[in-house]
Design a protein around this nucleic acid. Sequence first.
DNA 1: GTTAGCACTCATTAGTTGTGAGTGCTAACA
DNA 2: TGTTAGCACTCACAACTAATGAGTGCTAAC
Lengths: 348, 348
Amino acid sequence: MNLNERKLQILQAIISEFINTAEPVGSRYLSKSYNMGISPATIRNEMADLEDMGYLTHPHTSAGRVPSDKGYRLYVDELMDAGELPEEKKQAIQSRLDQARRELDNTIEHAADLLSEITQLTSFAVAPGNLKSRLKYVQFLPVDSNTVVLMIVAEDGQVVNKAIRLSVPYKEKDLELMSKMMTRNYMGKKVTALMAMNIVEDFTKDMHSLSALARDVAPSFMKTLEKMLDAELYMYGYTNLFKLPEFSADMERAVSFLRVLEDRDYLTDVLVNRDSGVIITIGDENAEAMKDCSLITADYCVNGRYVGKLGVIGPTRMRYGQVTSVIKYICDHLSDTFQIEEEDYGKD
Amino acid sequence: MNLNERKLQILQAIISEFINTAEPVGSRYLSKSYNMGISPATIRNEMADLEDMGYLTHPHTSAGRVPSDKGYRLYVDELMDAGELPEEKKQAIQSRLDQARRELDNTIEHAADLLSEITQLTSFAVAPGNLKSRLKYVQFLPVDSNTVVLMIVAEDGQVVNKAIRLSVPYKEKDLELMSKMMTRNYMGKKVTALMAMNIVEDFTKDMHSLSALARDVAPSFMKTLEKMLDAELYMYGYTNLFKLPEFSADMERAVSFLRVLEDRDYLTDVLVNRDSGVIITIGDENAEAMKDCSLITADYCVNGRYVGKLGVIGPTRMRYGQVTSVIKYICDHLSDTFQIEEEDYGKD
DNA sequence: GTTAGCACTCATTAGTTGTGAGTGCTAACA
DNA sequence: TGTTAGCACTCACAACTAATGAGTGCTAAC
């Protein structure tokens, strides 16, 4: 049994119909509304074939057909239209994004927010910590008699800081000295390399004059470095899910969905380890916890260098074509915005 | 009609019963289980009085009684027990919190997380930006040919930073110069005062040598200052709500609850503007959007100075006594942990 | 290969009824 | 005068029934 033109046509009709209505699609309706010139009975035969091949299923005997994950996969790969966005939509997105284009972090957050608004799904943006980033300098700032702020700056401009409570008194001079020593010792080293080192020992050896202070600070220093490698996750529109018929009918399902979204560490992990490019994963192609969801993600770049991902998560029934187009466009637009502005530089 | 001892006793019984079961409480059950030595009929008379006084309501004619918001208020003010936590619970909380006690931000997050776990409600912690904070220094760090990081440090140790894309080229020297000029001009000034100033004009006047650069940076500088006054909000356990019977039965209600939680700006605003101390607000005592919720918050301090709030949000039916005890204890413990460690200082 | 016809399935909805928890009221009681 | 037993009444809820209708699968004819 092979997928001839007519079978594909019927599959496409069923899937786009189901995506719109969330109701199982029957043969009679199809025959009428999509006037393909064949009778319901013929369509039923074809449907039965498509079901045998695994592209469709049945919620129960007397219901219409519903796409399976495999069916969606075929749809996404072969049938759907994820073309260019119409010009007016592009304009609308642009004007919304260009408001704060000088600021990297804000822009990404806005983009994610906008994405959830347009798609009416849950959107997220993730900016993984740069594994290759190298330390630029370390600085301790005095705050009050027993609190200092540790600040670490990486060569790529990432800054992390942490307030630290000390159990021993310090002199401003000591802090300065320690800042300088640490900067000298660790400058240019990869953050990952530093984390593998036995810094605590290092500290007490190199900085005997400051040993008590240094020993106090070492664990926090490691924690702060860790923070540098941590990914940042933004998430928007998780109540959008409840507007969808599949969830407003089925509370259980909605809650198990929410629980996945609540586990930010898990979600971050999934996203960070995801392949690059425009990636769509459908239902059981995802890990067990997300086998009822589909994810679409794409990458955005700064100066052509990969920086993070933007995407949506939703039920397997979603407008794959439109959503993909929007995500693609937003990511491309972000990457363009954060391209080195050569024209500007040329001017001066 | 006044609230005699017996009425109070009945009210207390109804409320604690309802808090446990989420089912309307009937007169017969009360008479049997709480053996107060009076018949159901008498209890019914008292109940009718309590209802006239506004402390109870009726979901429908043939149902038992349910506390009203006013009833909960009386309960919270007069009847409930929010005493000391038993020693073993204190121990458990302490040991969970003491893991990362050198790091301020982590500890607060852990505390909020723990709070949601213990209470099985949604917890949050908010650390409002310090309105009195004064600027300590400003620094621009070069990242790549058209990106710099702006870093602002306040006297109290708060650090904010932002990556900024420039449209004009810069020299490292210019950045240094600008950092120095801004630090000199703004050091010791209140952040709120700076925000009221017309910095953009200031910039072009004071720094004519850097005018293009300065003009480019000014709006981002303002935005970054803003960030310094923004409150940080952490939230944990919002799916806990779905475990409660009032929400698993009534989807609508759960969703409208979630929508409130999703609006972080609104929630932050409510929390920041809340009175100090251990505050309980019940049902319609809250703003319209939260008229079905109750909030309990308390403050935590660092070095005796007010720093932020920790609390829970849940349905009006909650274990006010226990939850209040836990929140109080956690806040006190945090404040102790972040008290200047005089003993330690004495040693050296 | 296509289609009309028909029996069959099954979710959904509306209607019906019984049950039980609980109230409010009244009249009798201490 | 406060307390209580008794009883009629209310109303949510669950169980059952029947009707409806959308849709399938199969068969036989075209």
